[in-house]
Nucleic acid binder design. Structure first.
Length: 258
DNA sequence: ATGACGGTGTGGCACCGA
């Protein structure tokens, strides 16, 4: 079984690439972020014709998340329960698998702009609410995967310039502590379970030849619960879509489970 | 220090992303 996450930076623009990628990579579930469209504009039919069920939590202009699944999804939750949030950043579903139900949480985490700003304070509040909610989700669902665009580079090796960017957004002690707190709940960073190429990233700035120079960040993650750890056999970034004409600035991350 | 690129909205640019 394969599960993937991809920040597509506008599903309207990227739909042909998503369909092409799914044809080449027929994963069992794909989490999308930054749809930048409302649910009434969600391309449900095209995705169904590609063989996927889909549930979305859309929003105009910004944010928006969705799950595409091979089998129908149930127990759909949109946004963090109890958090008053006008931004569409979370969608969670349960998917039946051969080894039982699996809880799939997809997040488009807050960017945060810069430490000291209102947006950074919102990021901290949001991360705390997420942590509290994920804790309860894990108690209810032993087989759980938390994926998405975390907007956090967990360690120095996840950044092309950890010295120059020290304490800037994605690199702050506070953001990294929140990422660590998710690991402390018992989640495991699937990507780091395996040997990886040095300077592995999932996002590259559109500007200044960021991708060509591999000036990127690893901010898109797949975390798995302890009960799933033994079944994870691979996890990697697929850089190919970043080479497309009109690419998203993010590349998909894929995990394989037995 | 700033902007660089790309997407969106309703515009002649501003805002946001990371």
């Amino acid at each position: 079984m394969r599960i993937a996450t991809w920040n597509v930076n506008s599903l309207s623009v990227r739909l042909p690439q998503v369909l092409a990628w799914l044809q080449a990579n027929p994963v069992d579930a794909l989490a999308l972020q930054e749809l930048k469209l409302t649910d009434d504009k969600f391309p449900l039919q095209a995705l169904q014709e590609a063989g996927y069920h889909a549930v979305s939590h859309g929003q105009k202009t910004y944010n928006g998340v969705a799950w595409l699944t091979r089998t129908p999804a149930s127990e759909v939750v949109r946004n963090i329960p109890g958090l008053d949030d006008d931004q569409a950043r979370i969608i969670a579903v349960t998917m039946d698998t051969p080894s039982g139900p699996m809880r799939l949480i997809n997040g488009y985490f807050v960017n945060g702009q810069a430490p000291g700003t209102d947006k950074f304070a919102y990021k901290m509040r949001w991360l705390q609410a997420l942590q509290d909610w994920v804790r309860s989700e894990m108690a209810a669902h032993p087989h759980l995967v938390l994926v998405g665009d975390f907007n956090v580079a967990p360690e120095d090796r996840d950044s092309y310039d950890p010295v120059g960017l020290k304490d800037t957004i994605h690199h702050t002690v506070e953001e990294r502590a929140h990422f660590q707190a998710l690991l402390d709940l018992g989640l495991i960073d699937a990507f780091r379970m395996f040997e990886q190429p040095e300077k592995s990233y999932s996002w590259w700035d559109y500007r200044m030849l960021g991708f060509q120079k591999n000036r990127g960040l690893r901010i898109d993650h797949i975390l798995v619960s302890a009960a799933l750890r033994g079944s994870v056999t691979a996890c990697s970034v697929d850089r190919l879509p970043r080479k497309n004409p009109q690419p998203s600035d993010h590349a998909p991350v894929v995990v394989t489970l037995d």
